[in-house]
Design a protein around this nucleic acid. Structure first.
Length: 364
DNA sequence: TCTGGGGTCCTAGGACCC
DNA sequence: TCTGGGGTCCTAGGACCC
């Protein structure tokens, strides 16, 4: 009955954070720039732009988003700023403003919903292209930003398709197109195959999705475990039956910070303690604002050698109280070796439940 | 000059219960 | 004075994504 199989559209904003910044600073359009880093540095006195060039940037941090002009130099999100500075010394560094990006994200989602009310659109193929163009137009009109859309029989392929013709792209991908358009791509393009898996696949002589699709499933299962190995083979063949999910409850809420300079567990004890307490207070405030409480309190610590350890402790009752969180996380801290300098400290609360105030009021 | 911050999901062992 | 299997919870670590 259906030659019109269901399709899924994946909508992906183009260089999202950087594009939002360009709306605020249109005079920077056309220049290579990256969003990232941690601290807004003082404006210089020369009357130039208030943003430092990468070559003048000092400190820790990675690129969150790079404009296409910056990407032309080989920099990309996730790259350390100090490393990016070697590739694109003239690119400007703008600090991230997540509140603003959230605001645009909501506008963007509203615009999409206005055109495709189902949220995760599932419609007939015949309407696909038309609907996608409507979404792009609506997003452009309400946010002044551009997005790319991939349309495919499932989420996995739709995501890959959305990246094929960025920016401003619209890619419709049907079963018959998989061999020609998907199989030549590197395995990293599969959502869920990261750097580790890609490196291990390479040792098996597998670099492209097509090579992965043609690999012996038993070999993959042997090397990657039953579930993961089988999944990779299915994914490479374009098979994916995950449903479109439009709402999910958070599982944990956390705050963490990487220090400007590594801190010494004893000599910087006072500073560490103050930061530790602040993190607990911020997590507590997040819980309160979002209406959650949690039972499992966790500590995360990263040493100067980048080795990361976690400890957690589950309480009898859920809490969102900063002092209670601090107490439990403090106990976790005692179970962690403190023989090296520390670069990151984090606090998390998991096993979340809607906090008492959020629950339906009960009769007196 | 290495490597952010917020998350999700998976694995695996041990405790504990039936 | 030995031997089950299943289920759930807790903890720690790791891969991955945006």
């Amino acid at each position: 009955m259906d030659g019109d199989a269901r399709f899924i559209a994946h909508v992906d904003m183009d260089a999202f954070y950087a594009s939002v910044e360009l709306l605020r600073y249109p005079e920077l359009r056309g220049r290579p720039l990256v969003v990232g880093g941690r601290r807004r540095s003082a404006p210089d006195e020369s009357g130039g732009t208030p943003f430092p060039a990468l070559r003048d940037y000092k400190g820790r941090g990675v690129i969150t988003t790079a404009t296409y002009e910056a990407r032309a130099f080989g920099v990309h999100s996730g790259m350390a700023l100090m490393k990016a500075a070697k590739l694109a010394p003239d690119a400007l560094v703008l600090p991230a403003d997540f509140d603003e990006y959230r605001r645009y994200s909501r506008m963007f989602k509203d615009a999409v919903r206005a055109v495709a009310p189902h949220g995760g659109a599932e419609e007939a193929w015949a309407r696909a292209r038309e609907l996608a163009r409507s979404i792009q137009r609506a997003v452009r009109e309400t946010t002044a930003l551009s997005c790319s859309i991939g349309i495919a029989p499932n989420k996995l392929l739709a995501k890959i398709a959305s990246e094929l013709e960025k920016p401003g792209g619209l890619t419709v991908l049907r079963e018959d197109d998989i061999a020609a358009r998907i199989w030549p791509l590197p395995v990293r393009k599969i959502n869920g195959v990261g750097p580790k898996a890609a490196a291990r696949l390479e040792t098996l002589g597998i670099r492209t999705i097509g090579e992965l699709a043609g690999a012996d499933p038993m070999l993959l299962v042997e090397r990657f475990g039953g579930k993961h190995g089988a999944w990779m083979h299915e994914a490479a063949n374009g098979r994916d039956d995950r449903p479109v999910v439009t709402h999910s409850e958070p599982k944990l809420i956390s705050r963490e910070t990487t220090f400007e300079d590594d801190l010494h567990p004893e000599r910087d004890r006072a500073a560490l303690s103050r930061i530790f307490t602040e993190l607990c207070e911020r997590v507590a405030a997040d819980l309160e604002r979002k209406g959650y409480a949690g039972r499992t309190i966790g500590l995360k610590l990263r040493y100067d050698n980048f080795k990361t350890v976690t400890r957690d402790r589950t309480l009898e009752e859920p809490t969102r109280d900063a002092a209670a969180i601090r107490r439990a996380a403090g106990e976790c801290l005692k179970r962690v070796p403190l023989g090296r300098r520390i670069r990151l400290l984090g606090v998390r609360v998991g096993a979340l439940t809607k906090s008492a105030a959020e629950q339906a009021p009960r009769g007196a």
